[in-house]
């Protein structure tokens, strides 16, 4: 156990190893570790962000869904109302058409009845004339008539 040259040689070896570690081992590995830490940090931040985004999207989708449902209900109500209105209108129109038709038909019927009546009257007149003629033809006595006519002629 005596101090000798070994101490100096070990010191030199130590110095070389310190230099080697400080220049070739520590800095690159530290860089790698620091970079990884940054990456992990960024990854965590991104995860947090996407979580928030997801929440936002969920609330938005719920809102949209609710809105759509409301709009659909509204639309159904509207169209029902419109359908009822249309039906009402159609009914009214139909009633009007029927009315018009009835009025027209009644008018036509009246005219036709009138015409039939007139026709009938004509025919009745003709029939009466024909009847009268027949009756007259049987009753007519040419002698008497000639006497009558002769008396008339004499009065002229």
């Amino acid at each position: 156990m005596n101090i000798n040259l070994t101490m100096i040689s070990q010191g030199i070896a130590f110095a070389i190893f310190i230099w080697f570690t400080a220049s070739f081992i520590w800095p690159p590995l530290l860089t790698a570790i620091t970079e990884r830490q940054k990456k992990i940090e960024e990854g965590l931040a991104a995860a947090e962000r996407s979580k928030k985004d997801l929440e936002l999207a969920q609330t938005r989708s719920t809102d949209t869904l609710r809105e759509a449902r409301e709009k659909a209900t509204e639309m159904i109500g509207g169209s029902e109302r419109q359908a009822a209105h249309l039906l009402e209108e159609a009914r009214a129109e139909a009633a009007q058409i029927i009315n018009q038709a009835r009025v027209a038909a009644e008018g036509e019927a009246a005219v036709a009845a009138q015409r039939a009546k007139e026709n009938l009257r004509d025919q009745v007149a003709l029939l009466a004339v024909a009847g009268a003629e027949k009756i007259l033809r049987r009753e007519v006595n040419a002698q008497v008539h000639a006497e009558l006519l002769a008396s008339l002629k004499s009065e002229l």
Binding site: N4, T6, S9, Q10, A13, T21, I25, P28, A32, R36
Partner: peptide, 30 residues
Amino acid sequence: TLHVDSLVTAVLLGIVGFGFLWWVVRGATS
């Protein structure tokens, strides 16, 4: 006088140890 055994063993261990570290660090990835 030089204790050849101390010096050689120490230097060999240093080369093995720091060589290993250096070998790992050279392929280090972030």
